[in-house]
Design a protein around this nucleic acid. Structure first.
Lengths: 351, 351
DNA sequence: TGAAATAATGACAGCGTTGTCATTATAGCC
DNA sequence: GGCTATAATGACAACGCTGTCATTATTTCA
């Protein structure tokens, strides 16, 4: 005569519940709950028993039940600008997904097309309808103060990938844009360039001013006089890069090197140079930022700056999840390091 | 003396529940459930009362409660190849998100890097751990028979964006690659080209053979003899396009036009031609497929084929959701139409 | 050593929905 | 008009977990 009640546990292949674990470990379901939620106030021996039972039964908490019962949703929202060039967001996405999977969270997406007058309303609807615990804001949205204000009002924690520091205790991560730009400019100066054009990015991106600052610092350190006509505004788009390059190349004393604040504008610069029959890098060196797919696919392939986006996204999402769990985390103080990728769009100055 | 019980409904700003709706409509919660799930067996007048109450209270069913109670999860998985060039997936993502939002479903992502020997295990884990109702498989995974077989075993409905028809009653959508390739080739022939090189794509993509077929059909219709040495294998990557172009351009009687099966390979072809000093389109016309961002950013900008990816993804996801709701849907018979985008990489033959 | 303080554990209601089954209203038919 | 078939509705348990509060074990300190 077998005891049926003992066999019930892994019956039918149905997933184990908290009751199964409690029975196997010889404790109450509440204690199991304490263990899986890291609540503390559980003795080591008890915790070990429970952990063993969890492993043995391959127990995974039922998210729906947790959500229904508790005050958390186990959902993180990723709000991002729907870009024309997706490689940055693809990396952000992969990093955020990795962190969410590791932390048992689900990632929900809200792509936004800019400019968008209903932006705040859209975000509000997304956050309330989707029942989110937290939000990840990659650049450039990470620099938008009104979104942050809204999330603060709604008491939704968020984490930003953004160049600018804003609040003391908020979670944000950035890479060292200023330093990367400094080194990139320095590299061109080492190649003998003295007339260095610079194309700024979209001012809504915090990176824009940082990259410009790095350029200025490198000029200063090398003792090269700053010339305002060598700086043009851009918007990070291919078209705007082309237009800015036109202005720079129309100058009587045209630059021998142009630093575009991203790869798309660098591509536009190369496009414009080609239309004028300027050889690259013989007559003009061109550099970009971001190491997007286009950087290695245009002719000549582009010297640019690579950022560790996947790692940054993963780190910032992990921090957010830790905070949601009640752990006390602060933002990462040290910015992530960028690296220069040298290709054939740069060479010695010939002027 | 006001009756407190009447005021309870929209108390505290807490979301309305099914009880609130039932009370407001004067019916039982089960009847409300029937209405929101379109179960039928509800009289018109009753349904109208309930619908009015739902609207008045801005009621939205609690997904966690539905999942916990019922047998559905209200989650759709999107399994996709993590691509080097994301613009295709970005569009798929946007289309799928739109359909999910409209249908009240959540979209979960599983990016896969190919080749992946653990592919099936990864998919299995994703499907079972994430508790999915259905899966969307964009190309090229939509052509993978082993994934489809697995999903069939697990009894998970799926919908594919894929060139190949496989099962009679499965949901899938495709665009008319063969016809687009035919028209593209025809266009080059009209420009006077007679020596037409063709670079095939990755054979795991169903589109590869369709695009090749369209090329063959156009040759045949124009009475141009097929020459095997004008066809090279590629893998859809920039590098493979470059290598294939090298072989084609090394021929004694080299082609005056090259049709690459995607934009990346067309970019590789242009890269290779440029290294040899061949002017484009004077000495060589080049075309691609997909109208990715690179197509408009290289020099010269690329003549290519644009597919309505967002619409296709939205349509196929909507169909899947309809099927999950129990409605009887079949796949869309008529393929979506592609359009040729003419740019400067093509011109009259000069041979 | 014993009382008070604190740590560890448990019992149980409740979260908002759907499934099952019972009950009641309506329609169909001779 | 009364009986049966069927449509419409309702009562209530169950889903798996967490929060609250009560209870028990352990530590601390006089």
């Amino acid at each position: 005569m077998t005891d049926n009640t003992l066999d019930r546990d892994d019956q039918q292949g149905k997933p184990a519940t908290i009751f199964d674990v409690a029975k196997a470990a010889g404790v109450s379901i509440k204690t199991v709950s304490r263990v899986i939620n890291l609540e503390g106030n559980v003795r080591k021996v008890t915790k070990d028993k429970v952990d063993a039972a969890i492993k043995a039964l391959d127990y995974q908490p039922n998210t729906a039940a947790r959500v229904l019962s508790g005050k958390r949703f186990y959902v993180i929202g990723l709000i991002y600008e729907n870009p024309s060039e997706f490689s940055y967001m693809q990396k952000v996405l992969n990093g955020a997904l990795r962190a969410c999977e590791a932390g048992g969270y689900t990632l929900l997406l809200l792509p936004i097309s800019l400019p968008n007058p209903g932006l705040i309303a859209d975000v509000r609807r997304f956050v309330s309808q989707s029942r989110l615990d937290g939000v990840v804001l990659p650049a450039p949205l990470g620099d938008f103060l009104d979104i942050q204000q809204l999330l603060n009002e709604l008491a939704i924690p968020f984490a930003r990938i953004a160049p600018k520091n804003q609040v003391a205790h908020d979670i944000h991560i950035r890479c060292n844009d200023e330093q990367a730009s400094f080194e990139l400019t320095q590299y061109l100066i080492e190649q003998g360039h003295r007339r260095l054009g610079f194309i700024k990015g979209d001012p809504i991106h915090g990176a824009t001013s940082h990259r410009f600052q790095g350029y200025l610092r490198a000029l200063e350190q090398a003792g090269i006089e700053f010339r305002g006509e060598y700086v043009e505004d851009g918007m990070f788009s291919f078209e705007s890069g082309k237009t800015a390059a036109r202005a720079l190349l129309d100058l009587k004393e045209r630059p021998t090197a142009i630093i575009a604040s991203n790869d798309d504008m660098a591509a536009g610069t190369i496009f414009e140079a080609r239309e004028r029959g300027l050889g690259i890098p013989q007559a003009l060196s061109v550099v970009g930022f971001d190491d997007t797919p286009i950087a290695s696919r245009i002719w000549p392939p582009l010297t640019t700056v690579r950022q560790p986006i996947v790692e940054m996204a993963e780190a910032v999402t992990s921090l957010l999840i830790q905070r949601l769990r009640g752990e006390h985390v602060s933002s990462i103080a040290e910015p992530f390091t960028c690296h220069i990728v040298t290709r054939n769009s740069t060479g010695p100055a010939q002027s």
